[in-house]
Design a binder for these strands. Structure first.
Lengths: 106, 106
DNA sequence: ACTTTATGTAAGTAGAAACTTACCGTAAGC
DNA sequence: GCTTACGGTAAGTTTCTACTTACATAAAGT
């Protein structure tokens, strides 16, 4: 449903680094921003976009907001990708057979 | 390996439409461009980027070049995505159990 | 050999978007 | 209640990129 937003979201390298940091588990904003080459506000903006794409969730915990990976956006992305998977494998198999008929060139 | 290029590649809506047209099977450039709201050179440029990302292949066929989906880029993308899949499902399951303990709020 | 068809490339432009600093809101601790 | 810590938002700037038109290249047909 929202695979397009998820894609444009994860296209940005910095945003991807933010997202990948959450793979190890939920983290507050400060912990995510620490060590990244951009300012903390930039991280906040990235998290906002990731949230709108359904890729992360957040919950308040005292004075800090803890972000975690949201399966919804990830699932939509995976479903879209699977539409190509079968076709791609079939084409790949066909190519191998064609090469085999030619006597494995290259 | 090249999942980052594949992601930034498929982030563009027009480029995605080009890519999705190849899902039905290999097509020459002209056939791909026909019906799209952009010029044919634009499609050529998109195909170049898609090729560099390992998402499409092309072969000469007379005076026209036939493009098709390349499984390599697609596989790299899927592999990267799978790294998150297990973690996301586990978190989702954990969330459901937490809601269950609380008596299914909302 | 010339023309036509099919496609890639160059140059230039307009719009998006990622970053910065500065500011605002809110929860917690003294 | 005041201060401190944490994080979201606003405004502005700069860089990237997707698009256009114009040109170049190459195979096929006549």
């Amino acid at each position: 449903m929202a695979y397009d937003k998820a894609l444009s979201c994860l296209a940005d390298p910095t945003r991807r680094r933010v997202f990948e940091r959450l793979r190890a588990g939920p983290r507050p904003v400060g912990a995510i921003a620490k060590g990244l080459p951009v300012s903390r506000p930039a991280v906040s903006q990235h998290l906002k976009v990731l949230k709108e794409a359904g890729l992360v969730r957040d919950r308040a915990e005292g004075t800090q907001r803890v972000y975690s990976i949201d399966p919804h956006g990830l699932g939509a992305l995976r479903a879209w990708l699977d539409q190509f998977w079968d076709q791609a494998l079939a084409a790949f198999q066909q190519e191998i057979e064609r090469d085999h008929d030619r006597g494995q060139p290259r």
